[in-house]
Design a protein around this nucleic acid. Structure first.
Lengths: 234, 234
DNA sequence: TGTACATCAGTGAACGCGCGTTCACTGATGTAC
DNA sequence: TGTACATCAGTGAACGCGCGTTCACTGATGTAC
């Protein structure tokens, strides 16, 4: 089986060509398989059309390969989050759009998502920094910071709110992935209405605990409800 | 190693005694290890003080054993959810309390939680029924149904709301488990404020889209905010 | 009360498997003269 | 232009390992007489 698809040898300088192909194949396997355990060094090598030892010319070990897969995955997530934000000036709408992009991306790549989600930050604190520095995370934090500037909650709460939205989006995606038969409907309307209510709840709490006059608070809450309460406006 | 803790042979009729011990040991291993893959039939047998083939006297295969572990885990979750509901008459508070019990339980048993969460309902539709019939799920659904009766949203939305709360609680727990270093604080106050805002958001949306007069709506929203908006009331 | 026997919970040894990884090698590619 | 050589991407064979599972067995327990 290994020798069926034997690839042509790479030219001298370009070890990275094969490295990329290896990451691609590992990614493809994680996309196809239902179980991450099914992705072995041998399976990856065979898919690339190369023998297992070749993998070790490009990656120190299996973990390093999976780290590389994970890094590439985050780059793609970043692209999706960027696209989702493009051209949306209202930060509330943008936050919603970015959240939905996250959910869609995760649901489209279940095994990859789980791999990436559990790979980053098990223990080492450099990993935490890696997450916090991840571009998708930074982008979304910026959106939330804009919401704070708009008065939806205190600047000091930005970190909390980011975490809350992340938990919500992750929870929805994770549940959709793990229990696909729970009747999620054809499109992501259920997911979107969930994200909407999280946004609304947090924003209402933020407004209420702000220093505005109660008349201003009432008006702000009313505005939020108009913006987020009815699912069909968009 | 196997022979060090050799257990005394069970009396004639009671094969279930050892079966229980096996489930206990497998559970204990899943509690201690950071990785579910580390739990092997051999490890379980050795912990019970028995040889690997003995396991097959009580369980058809490894999957059956893990299913049994999972079933026992759900029983324990059910107990926690029951305890969390005890004596709380206000359904909103009760929903919150049950949600927090879920999060605490999951966070206290990370590997077991992940195992159980991913084991149930991968594909078979009987599994879906199993989840829906699970007592913890039924209990929480009853609480949400009471919220609907109280007018927080339409009866027809009960299923949606249950799913939304579940996604929220799961998302929080899952994030706390996977990224313990993200600064969750000592107690679960962050988790609780997240659940509160989800409750509030959903309830506000429910009230607003209800058939009440706008004056009644305003009063209802105000009541919800009083109930859920300030984290220190309890 | 004592003995022969059936039962069956648990054993010991082994099976085949796929895994991650290693190591000495091969042979096409590019370079020096 | 042609030949000898160094480089190094990729190979083939093998390693040790732990896994889930099987099978013929053993020997204490309980029963029949």
């Amino acid at each position: 089986m290994t020798s069926l698809r034997r690839r042509t040898r790479s030219p001298r300088g370009s070890g990275e060509l094969l490295a990329d192909e290896i990451i691609d194949s590992a990614t493809a396997l994680l996309l196809e398989k239902e179980d991450a355990e099914a992705v072995s060094v041998r399976a990856v090598a065979s898919r690339v059309g190369v023998t297992p030892p070749s993998i070790y010319l490009h990656f120190a070990d299996k973990e390093a390969l999976l780290d590389a897969v994970c890094a590439r995955y985050f780059e793609q997530l970043d692209v999706k989050i960027t696209e989702a934000a493009a051209g949306i000036t209202d930060p509330l709408r943008r936050a919603l759009s970015q959240g939905m992009a996250y959910v869609r991306f995760a649901v489209a790549t279940p095994v990859l998502y789980r791999n990436a989600f559990h790979r980053i930050t098990p223990d080492s604190s450099t990993m935490v920094e890696e997450v916090l520095a991840a571009s998708a995370f930074v982008q979304f934090s910026a959106t939330v910071a804009e919401l704070a500037e708009a008065g939806l909650f205190a600047e000091s709460e930005v970190g909390d709110v980011v975490l809350e939205f992340w938990a919500a989006a992750h929870g929805i995606a994770s549940l959709m992935i793990a229990k696909p038969r729970l009747g999620w409907g054809d499109d992501f309307q259920r997911a979107e209405s969930m994200l909407r209510s999280v946004c609304l709840g947090r924003a209402v709490i933020g407004v209420v605990s702000s220093g505005q006059t109660s008349k201003d608070k009432a008006r702000a809450v009313q505005g939020l409800i108009t913006e987020l309460g009815t699912p069909d406006r968009n």
